[in-house]
Design a protein around this nucleic acid. Structure first.
Lengths: 172, 172
DNA sequence: ATACTTTACACCTAAGTGCCAAAG
DNA sequence: GACTTTGGCACTTAGGTGTAAAGT
């Protein structure tokens, strides 16, 4: 259960270690994010509950991993991370970021394509992998304090919000 | 007459606007930096004068423009800038930076290759363009105050050294 | 001693964080 | 009125500047 925000990266990022590729062949790695169901949600009494039918789907976009294309050998050498994938709720986005609806549930999908060239993508066969545990609800403001704390604790850019030990300050 | 420093970028950067390419074809853009003559220089009485034979040449490296390969159409759309090219005087450099000898004169060269793939580079035909006015002497410390000021005035990262015009005051 | 080189440093750019007040 | 969204902010990482002092 992960979250999203205005125009920001997905965090934590999707990471995968790849094996079984042809060392010599070229591959392209992609990720897209599709609706997990056709519901709109709200956060009530500490949990996400259905709050009606989903809003119309946003234009679909495919994120191409920036190292693409690379050889199987190169992909298998290191963990493949999609931390640079950017999410936005701006329908008129011109950057090619992935557009999502706030308060909707989403499922990232990982695509592996054997192709030497981006231009050949439309004619290539995809292998698509879905990891159910990466499902998340998109939001514009955090609803769950535990998620906030998880991000503060783990995202290096949020280090400024880490409570340096003892003095817990009051918030109201 | 431009300068260089420890492990730093080349500044001002080499920039070119390209035209006449085949829109559909893929191209790779490269830059290397070769000795302009076989002399060692020193800066004396406000000018560079020859001070003996050149030191042995450094290992040659070819900088591949990070957007490579791209289609002719993509290259022609924007100014092609080599501002990320890095220079060093460290002979054992492992990053692939361009290695130069301090106090020697150099000539950048721009290479245009019609090739869809970096692996095909060795078998491809290069078109090489040299602009004499981009010749420079490599240094580890600036010799000419005008060069220093030119950099301070134009390099955004050196803004901290700009005199904010009126009212020169000493630091408190 | 002179001339050049290295290093730590303050000051920048550029971009990714959650927060909070204001707006919708 | 309760909820959601926006935009400015201080904070962070990451890395590019010339400087001055120290090193060779």
């Amino acid at each position: 259960l992960l979250l999203f925000f205005s125009t920001r990266r997905m965090f934590p990022p999707f990471k995968a270690r790849i094996s079984g590729l042809d060392k010599q062949a070229k591959y392209i790695m992609l990720m897209d994010i599709v609706a997990a169901d056709d519901c709109r949600y709200k956060f009530h009494n500490g949990r996400w509950v259905v709050a009606g039918k989903a809003d119309p789907e946003m234009p679909k976009r495919m994120y191409i991993h920036p190292d693409s294309p690379s050889t199987g050998e190169q992909w298998m050498q290191k963990v493949v991370s999609f931390h640079k994938l950017k999410l936005t709720n701006n329908i008129s986005d011109k950057h090619g970021y992935t557009i999502l609806n706030s308060m909707h549930k989403y499922q990232p999908r990982f695509h592996l394509v054997r192709a030497s060239d981006i231009l050949k993508l439309p004619y290539s066969t995809f292998r698509t992998y879905v990891f159910k545990e990466t499902e998340f609800v998109a939001v514009t403001a955090y609803q769950n304090e535990k998620i906030t704390q998880l991000k503060i604790d783990n995202n290096p850019f949020a280090k400024g919000f880490r409570d340096s030990g003892a003095g817990k300050r009051d918030k109201k």
